[in-house]
């Protein structure tokens, strides 16, 4: 469903600040794969996400979504195939607009926008039905402005908006990192439920090792712009934080230098 080949990018090339953010990344996601990506700060996780979504373009390499080469496709065009949830709960919704209007915007993601009303009776019924899956009572607040919702509610809505139109790829960029533990757990559980029900091909970046172990069928560890570990299936089921840290030490020869990744 997603194929990344030989992807590389260097920032500030030829200066003392030169940084090889991604080096020859090879990655292939089969339909329905739910891959969690971990790694310390600066490992290239977010760069990889931004490159798949089209916010950044690679120096070399190919990105294919659903067998279509999208490497040079602009962000908004690529967005027809991609659902995204950002780290900042404020980033995925429009605060001055109502819940219904936000969902109507998301509904049009994989369609051509027309001069027909964004919300009609039929769509409103669909929005309500979808909102019920969040168990937050938002289905009764369709005309409430999104700016009035709490961070957790907004992130749950963002998650719904990114997924209910069945994108080819779902990108989750540390989407629980800015929430308090109980809200983060809620969003983590919702993510698990929604991905399981919809079988979306998902790539989730996280700082939280436990979350990376709990969710998904495959785990990738990145370091210094490279994928250094790729574990799936039964092997992933048997993984623990301890084993992950040992693996890192075995591959890199040093301890992982990120407390947040361990404790977070």
């Amino acid at each position: 469903m997603l194929r990344v080949e030989n992807l590389s990018i260097t920032f500030n090339e030829g200066t003392p600040d030169e940084k090889k953010a991604l080096q020859n990344i090879q990655l292939e996601l089969k339909p329905g794969d739910f891959v969690t990506v971990i790694g310390s700060n600066g490992a290239g996780k977010s760069t990889l996400m931004n490159m798949i979504s089209g916010a950044l373009f690679p120096d070399v390499g190919i990105i294919e979504i659903n067998n279509q080469n999208v490497t040079t496709l602009k962000e908004h065009k690529r967005a027809k195939k991609i659902g995204r949830v950002f780290q900042d709960p404020m980033a995925g919704t429009s605060p001055k607009m109502t819940i219904e209007e936000n969902l109507a915007i998301a509904y049009a993601r994989n369609k051509t926008r027309t001069l027909k009303p964004g919300a009609n009776k039929k769509r409103r019924a669909l929005f309500k039905e979808e909102l019920e899956r969040l168990h937050l009572g938002l289905e009764n607040r369709l005309s409430a402005k999104v700016g009035l919702l709490s961070g957790g509610e907004r992130q749950a809505l963002s998650l719904l908006m990114a997924t209910f139109t069945q994108p080819d790829i779902l990108l989750l960029d540390e989407h629980t990192a800015a929430l308090d533990p109980s809200r983060a757990e809620l969003i983590t559980n919702l993510t698990g439920e929604i991905v399981k029900e919809t079988h979306l091909t998902t790539l989730m970046v996280t700082h939280n090792m436990q979350q990376a172990l709990d969710l998904g069928n495959r785990l990738i560890m990145m370091d210094k712009g490279q994928i250094i570990l790729d574990i799936d299936g039964a092997k992933k089921q048997a993984l623990t934080i301890e084993k992950l840290l040992q693996e890192f030490k075995r591959i890199r020869g040093t301890d992982m230098d990120n407390d947040r990744a361990i404790l977070g």
Binding site: A108, R113, T114
Partner: peptide, 21 residues
């Protein structure tokens, strides 16, 4: 309308509306 909603989102959250194509 669908176009109008997208237009309103620009003044409110441009990153978001771009991620919705």
């Amino acid at each position: 309308t669908e176009v109008g909603l997208a237009l309103r989102a620009i003044g409110d959250n441009e990153q978001m509306i771009r991620s919705f194509s």
